[in-house]
Write a protein that binds this DNA or RNA. Sequence first.
DNA 1: TCGTCACTTATTGTTCAACAATACAAGCGC
DNA 2: GCGCTTGTATTGTTGAACAATAAGTGACGA
Lengths: 222, 222
Amino acid sequence: MKRQAGEGRGSTLNETLCDEIRRLLVDGALTPGQRLSESALSEQLGVSRNTLREAFRTLAHEGLVTHAPNRGVFVTTPDMASIVDIYRLRRFIECRALSAAWPSHPAVREMRAAVEEARTCREQRNWQAVGSANMAFHGAIVALADSARLDVFFRQISAELRLAFGLMSDKEWLHGPYVEMNQQVLETFEAGDTTAAVALLEQYLAQSERTVLAAWARQAAP
Amino acid sequence: MKRQAGEGRGSTLNETLCDEIRRLLVDGALTPGQRLSESALSEQLGVSRNTLREAFRTLAHEGLVTHAPNRGVFVTTPDMASIVDIYRLRRFIECRALSAAWPSHPAVREMRAAVEEARTCREQRNWQAVGSANMAFHGAIVALADSARLDVFFRQISAELRLAFGLMSDKEWLHGPYVEMNQQVLETFEAGDTTAAVALLEQYLAQSERTVLAAWARQAAP
DNA sequence: TCGTCACTTATTGTTCAACAATACAAGCGC
DNA sequence: GCGCTTGTATTGTTGAACAATAAGTGACGA
């Protein structure tokens, strides 16, 4: 839906609020499993309880927080099943999007930009930013499929995955190795060898899944 | 996430309310483009404005209603781009889910049940119910992929598509022919010829898309 | 006659305060 | 130690209030 019935561009505090909380979640300021008290958080953020509750509804639908009726809202704790599910979806979506892609699709430009961004951030050892750039790369891959709905769905999944990333301490190991791999995927794809690029991507995702799962298990053991 | 931090099963009016409004939307009691006044609707449904607004956030995130800041909430009007996008996604998701399916997956049982249901509803000429059963069939196909997140995503898309269905008058023509086609897909798949089943499914979706688009254009012309 | 401007009005955005309903914790009897 | 009742804090839901915005209205001037 392009410009449904107006869709005027007002700031609408609620939007701002959602963004703010999302940032808190992705930055790790709020740790998974933590309960988010309505009164406390509304006071801290300077909004009313009702407004906060509206934001919670949006975030809950995005999977970032979990609403337990009559008990409260919690930062979603990624469990193993979620991680497996998310990676299965990523393989499902990304590989197919890449394999059916039009070689000179505008999104390829974004892929390139993301790789560049990741490289410069890596030089500055800003691993959080490297993670963002890597995600942008994969978002661009999904964009190859030319579906607006798929794009927002993938953004959602990415945010949820970042929640899991937040559980781990060694960000360098978590994001660093994939800069090269992304670049390799891109170069292979641009060279015209789509099937090889897809194979690389599949390998990338498998390795990433293993890393995340291992770190999750290590962390969740005690 | 299976049972995140409790997730107790209270009715929580809000849930009920969302279901109620969804039903109104899918049944066509609320027509696309219509503005939903907060005060009017809250009074009509016997809930407070705040509660209704919370429900609106959920429904807006599902794409069933469109929120225009400072202007109000409108029943989403499906445009041509949305229909095309949704069908592209359905081809993307359903075909791949079916082609990679484990032949004795539990969801096959659901597929069979949906076909049965559709047949009986067709005999009673209850086309609305036929539409529901057909959708359940395709939901079962998606379930073959074994991804919880993909399931909810597809449910969302289905609801949005039903909004478009609501624009058309001839429900028999809209839902009737596909009962046979679904059955054919199922039988071919159960016979073990997966590739043929996928081809049939693809054909199904293409024909359905043409029908919907044509009806949409016919309706939107004046 | 037409367009522009300020003004009016209705609706949404947001807050506040209150009460009901529920879940958790503590204390009690056994 | 175990089940039960009681208390308390938090969420669920409501109603009213006010600010902010958008649409409609009508006067005014070219």
